[in-house]
Design a binder for these strands. Structure first.
Length: 557
RNA sequence: GCCCCCAUCGUCUAGAGGCCUAGGACACCGGCUUUUCAUGCCGGCGACAGGGGUUCGACUCCCCUUGGGGGCGCCA
């Protein structure tokens, strides 16, 4: 019991953008561990990189964690006894520890210039070794370091790596031994006085009494450094669990670059097909015309930094205009695409962990009970969106109606869908009429046009040809015939409308599709919509008749 | 280049020496249901990276090769 009360884990994101799915998985696993043990889950913002910091990113991360229902016991917004929880507010703490190491001779001021460091690295590479920094002999004294600082030179503090073997016990990977001389003296304080990740992380984990550090495997190689620091500072060593990484299906890293690449490929294709001119693209993306011309005429341009730096809103406008669905990378992207947090959480739970049974569809409650570190998988995983899509479909199908409705309303508002204005009852009926959808975007695609302005209808030429124009305009003839009859259908309900269609079929010997499809194309512009009765009810009689009329009036000979 | 980690269907994974004719899910293919698109139901295709050991017996243990990944920053 006491043991459980002392169980403390943390999630420590760096505010350089939205919450990445990999980070979300790490957060989830930590949360699961904490809830299961009855321990504490701490959120700490690692904002020690002033250059890469993105304004407002921490709030976005916090928002996405909340959306995923991963609540924390200590951290931003909730406080706690071990704060502050922003590293940028803990500089005095780090300074104190750096001074301590300095005074004890366990760290020293290092005066090398970037050029000297580069030279050392090149030399090490040639010599076939991975340690490049050579400790100066004799070491600069504290006085010398201070004096150099006075002169305005860039001075950092390096940790003096002790000549010991370091053993890290990882709960997932087992024992990891790093021998003497395999680690170099790394920087613990930058020349601007801010701590590096290694120092800040070790100090905070200790002061925040973290008992288990569960993080991405990309930190595995750093861990021996952390252990050495802990020893030097007299800290207790937490337990470690390094999670496998998550990649794209192609095996590439899931990064925000993927979005740029997707847009670039689409835009370049459109330029090639003559659909767009670089000038149009420049305008939409809000960039200089010559830049756009250079980017989209050049296959390799997508790798250029100027292109990668393209502003996000411009990117989104482009993607929207080009009908490109950007690959989802961040939690935020999945929100925008109309996924349920339940299914994203469920899916992430399955990446790098398995319950050992065939159960794949489960809620958080089950996850808390079933989760365990020894069932975490060692190998990296690929993020299969198809599987997520399928899982989301199942979650939508099984979610309680009120829960689904609430999530749907959130989404319509965020997505700026015309369905955002619907009352609850209608929205619920739309959801029911689209049953079988995979994401809310599917609902939008199927029924959104019914609630949009008439002018927003884009008639799909293929559908018009096949359903309306074919056979000497048989479909148009059907519209002419049904239009007046639809005026008299009473009441205007799905049942009555369906009954009307069925009766007409019986009378004329037509098949339902012969009647419903022309109507569907006329009112939706495409051969896809909910069942014909519901479709027309959502539209209302007036709009139905008007759209059919408009369609007939706009008929091309 | 150096150090480290990993390795079962296309993908996520089950498998802790005989339960394996290697199981499930997604994807894919075929069929059925269906007023469109979906959904749903039924069936099918499909893997132990290669080579050496250890053992009466290896997907399971060991070694090598190959492949994938990470680290080697005044990024985290």
């Amino acid at each position: 019991m006491n043991d459980q009360a002392h169980f403390r884990v943390r999630f420590a994101p760096s505010p350089t953008g939205y919450l990445h799915v990999g980070g979300a998985r790490t957060a989830l696993f930590n949360w699961l561990l904490a809830r299961q043990a009855g321990g504490a889950f701490i959120l700490r913002i690692e904002d020690t990189d002033r250059l890469r910091h993105v304004a407002g990113a921490e709030d976005k991360i916090i928002d996405d964690l909340r959306w995923l229902a991963l609540d924390w016991d200590e951290g931003p917004q909730v406080g706690g006894d071990n704060g502050p929880y922003y590293q940028s507010q803990r500089l005095d703490i780090y300074e104190r520890h750096v001074q301590q190491l300095l005074e004890q001779g366990k760290a020293y001021y290092a005066l090398e210039t970037p050029e000297q460091l580069d030279a050392m690295r090149a030399e090490a590479r040639k010599a076939g070794t991975s340690i490049s920094y050579r400790r100066p002999d004799p070491l600069p004294t504290i006085e010398q370091g201070l004096a150099a600082k006075e002169e305005g030179r860039a001075v950092v503090v390096r940790f003096k790596m002790p000549p010991d073997d370091i053993v890290v016990r990882d709960m997932i990977r087992g024992e990891l031994v790093v021998g003497e001389g395999e680690l170099e003296d790394f920087v613990i304080q930058k020349s601007d006085g801010w701590p590096t990740y290694h120092l800040a992380c070790v100090v905070d984990d200790a002061l925040m009494k973290i008992t288990l550090v569960c993080r991405g495997q990309d930190h595995l190689s750093n861990t021996p450094k952390h252990v050495a620091l802990q020893r030097a500072l007299g800290f207790e060593m937490p337990r470690y669990a390094h999670l496998p990484l998550i990649f794209n299906m192609s095996g590439s890293k899931m990064g925000k670059r993927d979005k740029h690449t997707a847009v670039h490929e689409a835009a370049a294709r459109w330029v090639r097909d003559g659909k767009w001119k670089p000038d149009d693209i420049a305008e939409r993306a809000g960039v200089a015309a010559d830049a756009a011309a250079a980017w989209f005429g050049d296959k390799k341009a997508k790798r250029k930094p100027e292109f990668q730096a393209m502003p996000v809103d411009g990117l989104l406008r482009l993607a929207d205009a080009a009908d490109v669905v950007l690959p989802e990378i961040d939690v935020h992207d999945f929100r925008a695409s109309g996924y349920l947090p339940e299914s994203l959480g469920n899916f992430l739970n399955l990446l790098g962990w398995s319950g050992g049974d065939d159960l794949e569809f489960f809620d958080r409650g089950h996850a808390v009970k079933a989760f365990s570190v020894d069932r975490i998988i060692k190998s990296n995983a690929k993020f299969d969106r198809d599987k997520l899509l399928s899982l989301n479909k199942d979650w939508c199908a099984k979610a309680p109606a009120d829960r689904l409705l609430a999530a749907f309303k959130d989404w319509t508002r965020a997505a700026g869908s015309p369905m955002a204005a619907l009352d609850d009852d209608t929205a619920a009926r739309v959801l029911a009429a689209c049953a079988g959808f995979r994401t809310f975007r599917d609902v939008q695609a199927k029924a959104g046009i019914l609630f949009a302005d008439d002018a927003d209808i884009e008639y799909d030429p293929k559908a018009v040809k096949k359903v309306l124009a074919k056979n000497d305009g048989a479909g148009y003839a059907t519209l002419e015939r049904l239009h007046p009859e639809l005026e008299t259908v009473e009441p205007w309900t799905a049942e009555a409308i369906e009954a009307f269609f069925n009766e007409t079929c019986e009378k004329t010997g037509a098949k339902l599709g012969d009647l419903a499809q022309p109507i569907r194309v006329a009112v939706a512009g495409r051969p896809v919509s909910p069942a014909i009765g519901e479709t027309l009810v959502f539209l209302g009689r007036e709009k139905t008749l008007r759209r059919i009329r408009n369609c007939l009036d706009g008929r091309q000979s």
